[in-house]
Design a protein around this nucleic acid. Structure first.
Lengths: 209, 209
DNA sequence: GGTTATTTGAACCGTTCGGTCCAATATGTA
DNA sequence: TACATATTGGACCGAACGGTTCAAATAACC
């Protein structure tokens, strides 16, 4: 009956790296270079691991890419949840757009959105990529829906158009990420985000008396 | 003074293929597979030419890609001009969205937009690709501006928001092409286009008495 | 029909691709 | 200290990569 203290979970040599950390580094690589352009050599360099360690731990390039995409979505989903909070309706949405503006002008943000990049690079060609594309779409939609539904409750906008505004907001964000990655000057992208904000403002109903 | 009839423009063996036709085929290849994923072997197969013929006529893969992109933009620009015509303002814009819907549900259209795909795949990495990204953005903007400015003249919309609506319309089209390529079901994409149309309808001002 | 210019197919280049294997090494347990 | 177990770096694989060269074939012009 003596239960051994659960110290012998792993017998041999323990792992010298943090899986999540390495996966993050690989995600960054794919984010920057895309799937095809990122070579195994790049992956080795980015991870700091040996090629065979990489392979043993995570599998093939294909599998690693899927893991990296998954990690991006999880991380990103959490970020969205954190960012789009509050009960101010459209004002929260506008705050999020400001976050998008900030990102789009940063070195990191000019790589666009990994989910969008993956969508357009691998599209229908890679089933798992299409799956992530759908997941990203859903996650982003849900996050955007919250402030917009709240805006309807607050009487800021026409409740009939909640779905339309959700779709529109998502499209605007996607398009901004495309522009940012596509080498469009940050001033121009920022101007586009101005338009996004002005559009949202145009959704406001006149305050009922 | 006897001017020779200008028959001896080319002395040797004449070209056996049509440059534009071959370039179209190559454009289709890059449209479908993207830049990195398209191999020289693919290019040979798509063009029907020999590898060295390809090289002699158009140059390296890199140069051919640029030529193909240029051809896409020219072709596409002409198409946009043809499609977005008329003087009905928002109704012409809505017609264009219907065209986008039709494309997005076709086999061919589910490859997205080559300019957008190129933007996100090569982004800042390839200067010429960034150049095309800007050209595409400008061309699309100008095409969309026409019906929207007309709508302002017709009193359909708030003239103050013309720029905003141009940016928005372009963003919606870009986002639709991303969705179409990303493996999103055609019904879902079509639903997104419904939202686009409803949004545009919400821009209409009440008819002044 | 001879000349000339061009295309053509195939062989070939060195490099990099993604992927695999294994002996050496390092570490926790007994 | 000896054992068991996992990781590690590097050698190695065949295939495909983008790109180049060239002799042979071909067709318009004189």
């Amino acid at each position: 009956m003596s239960t051994e203290t659960a110290t012998n979970r792993h017998r041999g040599r323990p792992r010298e790296f943090d899986e999540a950390e390495v996966l993050d580094a690989l995600m960054e690589l794919f984010w920057t270079k895309g799937y095809e352009a990122a070579s195994l050599a790049d992956m080795v360099e980015a991870s700091g691991l040996n090629k065979s360690s990489l392979y043993n731990t995570f599998g093939s390039k294909d599998e690693i890419y899927d893991l990296a995409l998954g990690r991006y979505l999880d991380t990103r989903g959490g970020m969205l949840d954190q960012i789009i909070t509050g009960d101010r309706g459209l004002d929260d949405l506008l705050d999020f757009f400001e976050f998008v503006r900030l990102e789009a002008s940063s070195e990191s943000g000019r790589r666009g959105c990994l989910a969008v990049n993956s969508s357009t690079e691998l599209g229908n060609a890679k089933p798992t990529a299409a799956e992530f594309s759908k997941r990203y779409r859903a996650t982003m939609g849900e996050a955007l829906r919250r402030p917009i539904e709240r805006a309807a409750v607050l009487g800021q906008i026409d409740p009939e158009l909640v779905d339309v505004y959700v779709d529109t907001s998502r499209a605007l964000v996607v398009s901004a990420s495309v522009a940012a990655r596509g080498g469009i000057e940050t001033e121009e992208v920022s101007r586009q985000i101005d338009s996004m904000c002005r559009l949202v403002d145009s959704w406001r109903l006149p305050a009922s008396v």
